[in-house]
């Protein structure tokens, strides 16, 4: 149904009038030109499209726009502050926790929510929390190391 939806996107008030059943992924990528969030499977199975809504990681390919009405949406584009990489972004770059980089935005956003909920996450907890995000290039070992470094457990500031 066509409706006006309002939410905060990366801290900025955002308003659009469209079918509120559309998926957040496509609204971000098409209507808002925010292409950092990726489409990998369209079925909630890969995590490439992960964004953070009110502090929780969600799969934007499965999230109808109406679900974010009035909420706080954070995407990969919103992590950098004043030109400075977020500690997770920095750790991913430092550890080479990416190859083709296509899974990376989803990985970082999932890790962001994970560390919000478990700032002291152990290696095992990190691996468990990342389980449903797929990476075909096999960057897993470095992804875990990067998240660990950014976590409080290692004195990071995520």
């Amino acid at each position: 149904m066509k409706k006006t939806i309002q939410f905060r996107l990366n801290g900025r008030p955002t308003k659009l009038t469209t079918d509120d059943d559309r998926r957040l992924l496509w609204v971000l990528r098409t209507d808002l030109d925010m292409t950092g969030t990726k489409h990998g499977c369209g079925a909630g199975l890969c995590g490439s499209c992960t964004v953070v809504v009110d502090g929780k990681a969600v799969r934007s390919c499965q999230t109808p726009l109406k679900n974010v009405d009035g909420k706080e949406v954070l995407t990969i584009e919103g992590l950098e502050q004043n030109g400075k990489l977020h500690p997770l972004q920095q750790a991913f770059a430092d550890h080479g926790a990416l190859q083709c980089g296509f899974c990376t935005p989803g990985m970082i956003m999932n890790a962001y929510a994970l560390l919000q909920q478990q700032p002291q996450a152990s290696r095992d907890a990190i691996a468990e929390g990342m389980e449903r995000n797929l990476c075909r290039c096999g960057a897993h070992q470095r992804i875990v190391a990067a998240i660990e470094e950014a976590s409080h457990a290692k004195g990071g500031r995520s």
């Binding site: 995407t75 990969i76 990489l85 770059a93 990416l98 970082i108």
Partner: peptide
């Protein structure tokens, strides 16, 4: 990696 920052920022 020269492509690292591009890839972690989207």
């Amino acid at each position: 990696r020269l492509d690292g920052v591009d890839k972690v920022t989207g």
